[in-house]
Amino acid sequence: MDTRSSSMRAHARGAIRPTLLAVIAIFVLLAAASWFLILQPHQELVMQDAGGHPSTPVSTSKIAVAPPANVEAMDLTQLLAEARKAMNDHRVLAPAGNNAFEFYLKALEKQPGNTVATDALRETFPFAASGAEQAINARDFSEAQREIDLLAKADPANYTLTILRSKLDAQRKLLDKEQQLALEQQRQQQLAAEKAAADKAAAEKLAAAQKTQQANQEPPAQVAATDTPASTEPAKPVVRQVVSTDPVMTKYVQPRFPTKARRTRTQGWVVVGYTVDVEGNVTGAQVVDAQPRHVFDREAIDAVERWKYKPATRNGRAVEANLQKKIEFRL
């Protein structure tokens, strides 16, 4: 009895499997038939009314087509016809006043909720958005802003608008930064050119001054007489006269009398040796001799280092001069 029941159950399971496969096959065939017979024709009909197909590339080029006259006076049928014509010409968002989006929006003003216009705007929105993005990438910012505003009228809540606006803002900031960088580079180049011109002028001026100074220092040329017979005596060397002047003090600073020496009523003197340079400044001051030692040295050096001179000259040129000065410290 048990053997027969088990055999019947196994037979029933074997019969169910082909039936299940047949049902699944029927559903697949029905789905395919629905696509080819219902959904696809409906989509093609909508896109035919819209004047294109989603796979049709969108061009943002401003085709030179004259806009129809008196668009405001057109009825719904005329607006939809103009919209289909614009879609066929790939005038989705541009040019302004003569594009499919504007005609469809006008149609919705005439008849809010019009299915053809609504479906066409929804179907073509992603491809129109790519056209606005092309305008952004081309840095045609005014045109890109117009197209984004037009897209916002069709679908103000679409998140794509947020992305487009962010890209437009980023490109504007990038362009501003590039322009500022270019202006800064231009300014730096101008400053460098001005500096180079100033350096060149200074170098030319210095060269001219040195040339003039050398010319003033050269002795006059000696012209030998040719009318007299040559002398058998050896020529005497020409002796150039050297004109020199000593340094002349222009500023004298009185040495300070040390407080300790004043209290002890100590007196003395210091001999200071120093150099007067070509600018008339005192350099290298040092004590040569002193009496008493190390009592008045510091005050003497401090005073001498602040003295000023008109520098010594030799043949009209300033030269250094070494001097010694005995400074008395008396009460």
Rank of each mutant, 00 (worst) to 15 (best):
W35E: 02
P255V: 10
A73D: 04
V295P: 01
F141R: 01
H42V: 14
L183R: 10
L93N: 02
A107N: 01
V248M: 11
P247L: 11
N88P: 00
S6L: 04
R263G: 02
F127A: 08
R263S: 02
D149S: 14
R84T: 11
S142K: 14
Q291M: 12
I24E: 02
Q267N: 06
I63S: 10
A193N: 09
E194R: 14
K310T: 15
Y274T: 12
D149H: 07
R122H: 06
R139T: 03
L121M: 06
T313W: 09
Q213G: 00
N216F: 07
W269I: 11
L150P: 01
P57M: 12
D246K: 15
T124G: 04
A50D: 00
R165I: 00
T250M: 08
D75W: 15
T250I: 11
R139A: 01
L181W: 03
E218P: 01
A285D: 00
P237G: 10
V239R: 02
N158T: 02
I163L: 04
P258I: 09
W269E: 05
K110E: 01
P156C: 04
K251I: 03
Q217V: 05
P54D: 06
I38Q: 00
E109K: 12
K325C: 06
E299C: 02
K106T: 05
A10P: 04
T77S: 11
A138D: 03
Q171A: 14
T212H: 07
Q291I: 14
A96V: 13
P156T: 09
R314K: 14
P219C: 00
P258L: 05
D119S: 09
L45N: 02
T77G: 03
M74F: 15
E147Q: 15
R293V: 15
R84V: 11
A10D: 02
A50Y: 04
L191K: 10
D149A: 14
A100N: 06
M47Q: 07
A86C: 13
V282P: 04
L151R: 00
G131N: 07
V242I: 09
D199F: 13
